[in-house]
Write a protein that binds this DNA or RNA. Structure first.
Lengths: 220, 220
DNA sequence: TAGAATATTTAGATTGATCTAAAAATAATT
DNA sequence: AATTATTTTTAGATCAATCTAAATATTCTA
């Protein structure tokens, strides 16, 4: 059984290692969790003893299978609560996080399964991040900035990073919306802009900034 | 700012002093909170320093005004969460408590006001206990077993202690339901049974056991 | 590759929350 | 009122989580 603080460390380490890095460094954890490296050093030794991470002195840590399972449970709770807060309590995207940070530590398997059912088993949270199921399996495909798609590949718009009125209005003008299909026709190396097809209609140009802020789920 | 543990102590002390006792003893707190008197002794000195209780050595403690306010906030949260769990997540009365014990410590005024609105500003929780408003004011009148009403007094059925199908069916047969008006016509000393009027119709007899399990809000 | 810079760990302290054992105060009883 | 029993408090330890300062490793760079 992990304490609230241990859960937070584990979750942070899991997130840090998502970015591809094999071993997560002490300093990176300290930065992310807003604490001192000395405290992290202590804690990762404790988490190693508990079997949720593998720790080798001076070489950073790596989440174990057991650790991943535990981390995904916390992440599942966090994201389900976010859906609840936004869809039923009228929270906006930016108000949601710190409350979900607290709610994610409530311990009750029954609660979380009932909440999941109440919400209609959502697959993604309000930020577009996938919600693992009770077994830790992530069904939704990971989302990536449209910018990263290559010529010829297709996807569906699932979320936006920037939710300012200016940006949303621009999307509207382009004919882009959540759920719209997009296909990359051409990319321009010079300025990283791209030409895309939205819902198989006429091609439109979008700038690098716009493409970075549209999250798509790749298909095929 | 109180810690989670301090909140639990304060809430417990508040509840213990509800039962009329002026000064709450160290041992009573230890019993209620399932801890040792020595730990309580430490803690009540800390709570005294924080101004939420008044402590005099060997004489027990008393909640201050500030303390009462803090305790009522926690109780408000607990009871609102109970309403949510029962009405929206299909929890039964007995499954609710330990989850609400955790949820009551979530710190977010916005969350609790939004939850309150979402639930339709309920005045009582699923056990019939009153929910204080945001300022700590209790609007609902306290509920008592129908058994305790005297001849001639009236009330409204607000809750039941026993929620077994057998009991609920019996109530149905009597014509009793949540919100029904009742008036006590006669009480029988011998077996503590009583004759009551439900919604001003024909009088019915109910046994001691039934009268104990119906909670009413007295009126007039 | 040697020295400098950076990252990491250890040592030692502190705070919150708890415990056991012993001391002190209050309450009960003969 | 004196003694006994009970309650409460204090003293001293322990564990989780954190910190600062110092020691040790690793990495970078000239």
């Amino acid at each position: 059984m992990l304490s609230l603080v241990e859960e937070n460390y584990l979750k942070t380490i899991y997130h840090l290692s998502e970015g591809g890095r094999e071993q997560v460094s002490t300093n990176a954890i300290a930065d992310a969790i807003n604490t001192k490296p000395a405290s992290v050093s202590d804690m990762i030794q404790r988490l190693d003893r508990k079997g949720v991470i593998n720790y080798t002195k001076y070489q950073g840590v790596k989440v174990t299978g057991e650790g991943q399972e535990a981390a995904l449970k916390v992440i599942r709770k966090h994201r389900l609560w976010e859906v609840f807060l936004v869809e039923h309590l009228n929270f906006s995207w930016d108000e949601v996080h710190e409350v979900a940070e607290q709610l994610e530590h409530i311990k009750s398997p029954l609660l979380i399964e009932r909440l999941d059912a109440f919400l209609g088993h959502p697959k993604v949270d309000p930020h577009g991040d996938p919600i693992p199921d009770a077994k830790g399996v992530i069904r939704a495909k990971p989302q990536q900035p449209l910018q990263q798609l290559t010529v010829g590949s297709q996807g569906v718009i699932r979320a936006v990073k920037d939710s300012s009125p200016a940006f949303l209005q621009h999307l509207d003008k382009l004919g882009a919306y959540l759920g719209a299909r997009v296909k990359v026709i051409e990319t321009v190396d010079f300025d990283n802009s791209m030409q895309i097809l939205i819902d198989r209609t006429t091609p439109v140009f979008i700038s690098n900034q716009v493409a970075e802020n549209i999250l798509v789920e790749e298909s095929e």
